[in-house]
Simulated scan of single mutants.
Amino acid sequence: MAKKKKVEPLTGAALLQKVKTLDTFSKEQKAKACGYYTVTKGGVERVSMMQFLNALLAADGIELDGKAATDGRAGRSASYRLSVQANGNLLIGIAYTKQMALKPGDEFELVLGRKHIQLKQLDPVE
């Protein structure tokens, strides 16, 4: 019995085009036709639906991992948790100030609650 050559799964525009031509097929049939399946040692074909659906999303430009395009500089993402430093200061990092579009000199009012601290941005003085 001749071994079947492994077909590389389609990606990108080729994947989208192929799926459009298979409109009468089931999801599993589309995945298999686009190369998203494996053959077990017993000869059973298993469709890789998750890989197929992820490839479709990627081909359509949808990113579910939250990995946004960056300006090439790696850094930590905002965790929305802060720690008091050894000198007693509470440092608010650049990830937060960029997200809020803050500029040097912006002023805040510190409001202490029972279980929270709130920063209220003051209107700029003109």
Score class of each variant (00 low, 15 high):
Gly75Thr: 09
Ala58Gly: 08
Ala31Met: 12
Ala59Lys: 03
Leu53Pro: 05
Met49Phe: 04
Gln51Phe: 07
Gln29His: 11
Gln29Cys: 07
Lys67Asn: 07
Ser77Val: 04
Glu63Ile: 07
Lys67Met: 04
Gly35Leu: 10
Ala69Met: 09
Thr40Val: 02
Met50Glu: 15
Lys41Thr: 15
Ser79Leu: 09
Ser79Asp: 07
Glu63Trp: 02
Glu28Leu: 11
Arg76Gln: 08
Tyr37Phe: 15
Lys30Pro: 00
Arg76Gly: 12
Gly66Trp: 06
Ile62Thr: 13
Asn54Thr: 01
Phe52Leu: 01
Thr70Leu: 06
Gln51Asn: 15
Cys34Leu: 01
Val44Asp: 08
Asn54Tyr: 00
Gly35Pro: 10
Thr70His: 05
Arg46Cys: 03
Gly61Ile: 01
Ala74Val: 10
Tyr36Cys: 00
Val44Met: 08
Gly66Val: 06
Ala31Phe: 13
Glu45Ser: 14
Ala55Lys: 03
Val47Leu: 12
Thr40Asp: 05
Thr38Ala: 14
Thr40Arg: 08
Met49Cys: 04
Arg46Tyr: 03
Tyr80Ser: 05
Leu53Ser: 11
Leu64Phe: 05
Met49Glu: 03
Thr38Glu: 15
Ala74Asn: 11
Gly61Trp: 01
Ala33Lys: 12
Lys32Pro: 04
Thr70Tyr: 02
Arg46Trp: 03
Val39Cys: 13
Ser48Thr: 06
Lys67Phe: 03
